[in-house]
Amino acid sequence: MEISSSSAVRSHCVGTTAVVYASDYLNKLTGEKIERECRRQLDSGCRALVIDFSDTQLVNSIGISILLGIIDIAEKNAARVVFSDVNSQTVELFEMLGLTRHVVLARNEEEALSSLSSFVPPTWPTLH
């Protein structure tokens, strides 16, 4: 298991899966750091991302936009994305905005990692 920390974002790899930890408030500053870390992990060969929200209290609009961007990048890299340990308020927000159509939610990191073994990547809704 490799543990790294780029720009104060905690992450580690389990095989070809990168686990990236979101901070307590997912806004522009922290969101961009997470995005950079996810890009870095995908560029270095990771084929799945687990974003862990166990420390996250709040996600604002910019955070949502950045998470959508990460999902987009992962899709382009044929990588899968799982969100783990999301609090109930944030789950409601993700559901309301439709993010849960594109990612799997897991109760914790362990469940996220095990779900990835039998994961079927979601498809984006048809836009036209």
Partner: peptide
């Protein structure tokens, strides 16, 4: 970003 994130 704010606009995109508001309506996802």
């Amino acid at each position: 970003h704010l606009l995109l994130g508001t309506l996802a």
